[in-house]
Amino acid sequence: MHTKNSIPTRREIEHIGIYTPGKPVEEVKRELGLQDVIKLASNENPNGCSPLAKEAIILELSHTALYPESTAPELTQKLASKLGVDQACIITGNGSDEIIHLLTRSYIRAGDEAIMADVTFSRYETNVQIEGGVTVTVPLIDGAHDLEGMLRAINHRTRMIFVCNPNNPTGTIVGEQELFSFIQKVPPHVILVIDEAYYEYVQDSDYLQTLPHLHQYANLVVLRTFSKIHGLAALRIGYGIMHPSLVQSLMKVKEPFNTNRLAQAAAIAALDDTEFVNSCARLNDEGRTYLQQEITRIGLTHFPSHANFLMIHLNRSGNDVFQALLAEGVIVRSGSLLGYPETIRVSIGTMEENTAFIQALEKVLGA
């Protein structure tokens, strides 16, 4: 019997940590013996998904013995029509994070550099490092991307740049003209990935609509997802919009059946329910405004968020507050895992959940 594993892993993954998601409700109930727990940790849609998506899932259940279509042609065709782009410009993925994986798998070579913010979505860094690439991080300015600093970081080894807009975990955006100027200045041989996972939540008019510029910049990639405002996080379905030549490269390295039948059917139906999306955006805006006002009343500050979450400055250990809130049955995200150790990130919930969070936070801070 072998008592010790002496098989070495690839050098590139030796120092990579395991991704830590927000704690599941079921786990907290088991660990703490609580009956009522609310989860505001993973930027999920508290309103669920569209009734049309639910109906589509039920109908598709009769086909679970059959493999899905490999390229999700019906979904890509519908997305192309809705977004005003050519169908050849779209690739679907097992969440938009799979598109990140496909991009680095296709284009990052050992020693290549990828520029990103410090702090931003952690999977950019992980996927670059898995392929043997080197991450170059540029500190945020007041929680927002320093695009000028990112331009200065470009050199002959730069292969890819990531801009998360709105940024996770801070929720900030970069201005329309600032981002367009950045797109113009990035060298054409460098792939520029703009992650718009929270696109539908943005209410600010000073936000660049990137898709009209795809035809002019062949190095531009835009990522979006059905996990957030469409409420399909459990089904893992996202997509990338980019030049057809990039799509063809990614198709070579993607798994044959990377998006399942239920996810494809639900996403197609979700695109028809604009009323649901608009309602979710409005409710999120109301909830975000409420939390911002309450946080200010308590005497705390936060980054100016344009997404479905807020990052709150505590002037004390975010992990301690996270643990204390957990005991109150409220799951948030500790900033210690997100690069800001004296913060917590809280997702916008229903108004009932938002109120419960504020009550628990005041209790925890008072204690």
Rank of each mutant, 00 (worst) to 15 (best):
residue 1 M to A: 15
residue 4 K to P: 00
residue 7 I to D: 13
residue 7 I to A: 12
residue 7 I to M: 11
residue 14 E to K: 14
residue 15 H to V: 01
residue 15 H to D: 11
residue 23 K to H: 04
residue 27 E to W: 08
residue 27 E to G: 02
residue 33 G to F: 11
residue 34 L to W: 11
residue 39 K to Y: 04
residue 49 C to D: 02
residue 58 I to S: 04
residue 58 I to A: 08
residue 71 T to C: 04
residue 89 C to N: 15
residue 94 N to R: 15
residue 101 H to G: 09
residue 103 L to R: 12
residue 106 S to V: 03
residue 107 Y to N: 06
residue 108 I to P: 09
residue 121 F to A: 06
residue 127 N to W: 06
residue 132 G to D: 05
residue 133 G to T: 08
residue 137 T to F: 10
residue 139 P to F: 10
residue 139 P to Q: 13
residue 145 H to L: 02
residue 152 R to D: 14
residue 156 H to L: 05
residue 157 R to F: 03
residue 165 N to T: 04
residue 168 N to S: 10
residue 168 N to P: 00
residue 175 G to K: 07
residue 176 E to V: 05
residue 181 S to Y: 04
residue 182 F to Q: 03
residue 183 I to E: 01
residue 187 P to M: 01
residue 189 H to K: 10
residue 189 H to E: 13
residue 193 V to F: 03
residue 196 E to V: 01
residue 197 A to C: 09
residue 198 Y to L: 09
residue 203 Q to I: 15
residue 208 L to A: 07
residue 215 H to D: 12
residue 219 N to V: 03
residue 243 H to A: 15
residue 257 F to K: 08
residue 262 L to C: 06
residue 262 L to Q: 12
residue 270 A to I: 01
residue 270 A to E: 03
residue 271 L to F: 06
residue 274 T to A: 14
residue 286 E to G: 00
residue 301 T to P: 05
residue 303 F to S: 08
residue 306 H to L: 10
residue 307 A to S: 11
residue 310 L to K: 13
residue 312 I to Y: 05
residue 317 S to H: 02
residue 322 F to I: 01
residue 326 L to T: 07
residue 329 G to P: 09
residue 332 V to W: 06
residue 338 L to M: 13
residue 341 P to N: 07
residue 350 T to I: 13
residue 358 I to W: 07
residue 358 I to G: 06
residue 360 A to L: 07
residue 363 K to R: 12
residue 363 K to D: 08
